[in-house]
Amino acid sequence: MNCVETAQPLPPEEDTELNQKIYHAGQYAPPGRYRQLDSGREVLLEKEDILPASLDGHVAWYIRITPYTTLDKTGETPSHK
């Protein structure tokens, strides 16, 4: 029986274009809003928690786009007038 394993490339610890730390599914992350890099899906963590899997067979990679402390009660980023 042959077993073929396809490895997915690992992104760097920091995205050089965005100069931000990259998190992966299953990793504990601080509170905030996160965007999945390949799909654009957003996840809100209200407290330190584990980032969710993509459930499509690929490793999900995330960047934090908004710290939780800057979100208002609706989960939206407050507008600056």
Rank of each mutant, 00 (worst) to 15 (best):
E13G: 13
L44S: 04
K81F: 06
R33E: 03
E13N: 11
G32S: 02
V59I: 14
V4W: 01
D15R: 04
T70W: 06
A60Q: 05
R35C: 09
D38M: 05
W61H: 15
V59E: 10
S54P: 05
E46R: 15
D49S: 15
S79T: 06
P11M: 08
L45M: 04
E48M: 06
L37P: 01
V4C: 03
I50K: 02
A53S: 14
V59Q: 13
V4M: 02
H80Y: 06
A29Y: 03
I50A: 00
E46N: 13
Y68D: 06
T66G: 00
E14N: 10
I65V: 15
T77P: 07
E46C: 06
H80E: 11
Y23W: 15
P78E: 07
E48P: 08
W61V: 01
S79K: 09
P12V: 01
I65F: 00
L37D: 07
E46K: 15
I63T: 15
P31F: 04
Q20H: 03
T69I: 06
A25F: 02
Q27N: 12
D38S: 13
P78V: 12
I63V: 15
L10N: 10
D49P: 06
E76R: 13
E5R: 06
R35H: 01
I22H: 07
Y28W: 03
A29H: 04
R33M: 08
V4P: 00
P9Q: 08
R64V: 01
H58K: 14
I50G: 00
L37T: 10
D56C: 08
G32H: 01
V59G: 10
E13S: 13
G40F: 01
L71K: 05
N2K: 13
T77N: 11
E17S: 15
T66P: 00
T77E: 12
H24A: 15
I50T: 10
P12G: 12
L44N: 08
T6R: 09
E42I: 11
K47Q: 14
T74Y: 09
P31V: 04
Y68S: 12
E17H: 12
C3G: 11
P11Q: 10
Y28D: 04
K21L: 14
Y23E: 04
A60E: 07
E14P: 00
T69G: 04
Y34Q: 04
E5N: 04
K81Q: 09
K81T: 11
I63R: 14
D15T: 07
V43G: 05
L45T: 02
P67D: 09
T16M: 08
E5L: 10
G57R: 06
I63F: 02
Y62M: 03
G57A: 11
M1A: 03
I50N: 00
G75I: 07
T77K: 13
N19K: 14
P78I: 10
H24I: 08
R33A: 07
E14L: 07
T69Q: 09
W61C: 10
I22R: 08
L10G: 04
K73C: 05
Q27W: 06
I50S: 00
A25G: 15
G26Q: 07
T69H: 06
S54N: 12
T74L: 08
I63P: 02
N2V: 13
M1R: 02
N2H: 11
T70R: 09
E13Q: 13
